[in-house]
Nucleic acid binder design. Structure first.
Length: 347
DNA sequence: TGCTCCCGCCAGGGG
DNA sequence: CCCCTGGCGGGAGCA
């Protein structure tokens, strides 16, 4: 029996085993390299698993995260259609819309503690009430969905979109998503999943890893699409990319460039005075630092339409003035509203 | 030693 | 009933 354990055979040739080669981030890069082309329409999970040489299980992880930001849409069992990075702005807009609705909902039900318990329509709902009204079986389904990687991904993104902070540690994000629950086990599980998401987002260059200047603890900064090079994120199949994975690319010298004004009640960190994102040398040419600095100097946590923004994306058509107004709206919103994104299944 | 996160078990559910 | 789906956490790799 134990001889069938694949891990045992791996152990036998441990010297050939490299954990980084198996990372979800690298797998995501390879996945994108495989499908992020013009003309790609349909994706079969079996096909993807075979081509990438991984188990289906890992494909599910990638696909669920990508679907949460609009890059993929599930068509049928085993089948997804490719939407590409151009679909991200719309997906983010939808998330922002949800935040707005949740805000409105909170305003109306100001005694409600929990803001973001979502129903399947993406709208807010009072989970406790819903749960009381639903048959047990349905609650079970909801419970599972509420804990899904996809929903967690959306809520993780919302933390960036609705906040005026520059970076979030995974611990903080997990605590936010867990709400009032202070269960160490749930916390560990949540952080594990957030690592998965962060790895995928990092490989897409939607976020980047930085370190808290004081504690040195890892945190993540939202870059948005502008962090991605011309034809999508840095693609992999080489290990230099995977080195961008956590920790290895952050130097102490870089840390000193960060200053904090204050920490918020989220234990999130205040605005960065002189934001200089940490990018490995190998990626510097892919990175529009000027644009990032400008963006951050103006204090917007709004994503910026990157080179992928397609003509079909609705917001592309808005005027510059309108864009500025929208950003200002979001800044105002962020300054007064800090919803709590929680996967209620943890209760 | 703590952080990171791969890996695969197994429950749930759709076809 | 089979197989797809994906939550979950043990435990190994790594800095």
């Amino acid at each position: 029996m134990s001889s069938l354990d694949p891990r045992e055979s791996q152990t036998q040739d441990r010297c050939f085993y490299n954990r980084k080669e198996k990372s979800l981030g690298l797998l995501c890069s390879n996945f994108l390299k495989l499908y992020n082309h013009d003309g790609v329409d349909s994706i079969g999970l079996d096909n993807a698993a075979i081509k990438l040489g991984v188990e289906r299980r890992r494909i599910y992880d990638i696909v669920n995260i990508l679907e949460s930001v609009g890059v993929l849409v599930r068509k049928a069992k085993n089948q997804y259609s490719w939407k590409g990075f151009g679909a991200i702005p719309r997906a983010l807009d939808e998330l922002k819309g949800e935040i707005q609705r949740e805000k409105f909902y909170t305003f109306r039900c100001r005694n409600s503690v929990n803001v973001s318990d979502e129903n399947q329509n993406g709208g807010p709902s009072n989970s406790k009430t819903d749960r009381q009204d639903k048959p047990l079986a349905l609650c079970k389904v909801d419970n599972r969905k509420e804990k899904s990687l996809g929903l967690l991904t959306k809520n993780f993104v919302k933390l960036f979109l609705c906040s005026d902070v520059d970076f979030i540690s995974l611990d903080t994000a997990a605590a936010e998503l867990l709400g009032d629950l202070h269960d160490p086990t749930a916390m560990r599980t949540k952080v594990r999943r957030l690592y998965d998401i962060a790895n995928v987002f990092s490989s897409m260059n939607l976020i980047e890893k930085i370190r808290h200047p004081d504690s040195g603890k890892p945190a993540f900064r939202w870059i948005g699409l502008k962090g991605s090079p011309k034809n999508g994120p840095a693609t992999a199949l080489n290990l230099t990319d995977s080195k961008r994975r956590f920790g290895t690319d952050v130097t102490n010298a870089d840390l000193k460039r960060y200053k904090l004004e204050s920490s918020s009640d989220w234990q999130l960190y205040g605005k960065v005075n002189e934001p200089l994102p940490m990018k490995p040398e190998s990626l510097k040419d892919e990175y529009d630092q000027k644009s990032m600095e400008h963006h951050l100097k103006h204090g917007s946590m709004d994503f910026v339409y990157g080179p992928f923004t397609p003509a079909s994306v609705p917001n592309v058509g808005v005027s510059d003035n309108e864009k500025v107004r929208q950003i200002q709206d979001w800044e105002n919103f962020a300054s007064i509203y800090r919803p709590r994104y929680r996967n209620q299944g943890t209760f």
